[in-house]
Computed example of a mutant assay.
Amino acid sequence: MKATIPVYDICTVSDGHQHPDLLTERLGSYLKENYQRVHQQHGHSFYHLVLFTGGSGSHTLDFTRYAVEPWQLYFMTPGQVHSWHLGPETEGYVVHFSTAFFRSFLANPDYLDRFPFFSGQSPDQVMEVPEKLRDAIQSVFEQILQAGADNEPDLVRALLLQLFLETDRHIARDGEPGVPQQKQLVLRNFMALINRHYRSLRLPREYAEQLYITPNHLNALCQDLLGKTAGEIIRERVLLEAKRLLTNEQKTVAEIAGELNFPDNSYFSRFFRKYVGQSPEEFRKSLN
């Protein structure tokens, strides 16, 4: 049986850097140091940010491939899987920080969940920086690099929060003008609840109760903003986690079914085939 997909922690990739919960580096240097790691599919136990300022190639985030373009910004959360296939001229910035990095800095431990690009849903995590914002965003990354080199983690935290807020306000998809803030807030809270409870809660009404709205209201909101029903969004999250788990060939399909709270292996296999078009075993083989 093949070895499990590599899952790197912050210490693995931050070896030799000053802070155990942080890495800030120019992308070109990072790629040279980690060439073997980044070109194979792998996971992270930490948050991962990249701004491409030049270059070409592609990167795959949770089984969706994106073409690399200058001024593309993307975010990755712990537990996701990805790989890079980049040209030698690719440049930009990379920032890693652990789940503990903001813990003592923010009173609300779930503060990062408010941002759509930390939802764990890849369409929300890859975006283009508008031309009018490029100088300002690059300046923030340069300041983050300098603060990291000076071993000033609190300054890095403040600059990262500035980056998150500016990205949320001006770049993120659901921050576009014309969408009422209350609708955006309910959708964000719904997505955050799904990320916490998708293993145990599968019905829209269970989430609607926690959001203090009716199931019909929740469905209408999801259809309006995402073009999908609430049930489809919950199901997509379960399928995404199933795909992530299937990258680990040391886990049997039966173990994955149990981990995702399916009553048995055959029910999980039928569910997976219905919506993916392949059995779990066929999907696993297609990754090779």
Rank of each mutant, 00 (worst) to 15 (best):
G227H: 04
Q138V: 15
N261F: 05
T247P: 00
T24H: 04
F46W: 04
T24I: 07
E142A: 13
H96T: 01
S56D: 15
A3N: 13
P280H: 11
V68C: 12
M1N: 04
Q210M: 14
I137F: 15
Q184S: 08
I5P: 01
Q40S: 10
I256C: 09
Q146R: 14
P116R: 03
G57D: 09
Y198K: 05
L187T: 02
Y93I: 08
S14E: 03
G178Y: 12
Y267V: 13
K243P: 01
A107N: 10
L225C: 06
Y47F: 15
Q250C: 02
L86Q: 03
S119M: 04
L49H: 14
S45N: 09
I233C: 04
Q182D: 10
L203N: 08
E232I: 01
V186C: 04
P263A: 11
T60F: 00
Q40F: 03
V50C: 11
F115L: 09
L226V: 02
F102D: 05
F101Q: 10
Q250G: 15
D124V: 00
Q80C: 06
F283C: 08
H96V: 02
F97A: 10
K228P: 00
Q18V: 10
T99H: 09
T90K: 03
Q184F: 00
P215A: 02
F46Q: 07
A107R: 13
P123H: 09
S104P: 00
K285S: 09
R237Y: 00
K183S: 12
N265I: 03
A208W: 03
V68Y: 06
Y207D: 02
Y35K: 13
L31G: 00
T90H: 01
N261K: 09
L155A: 14
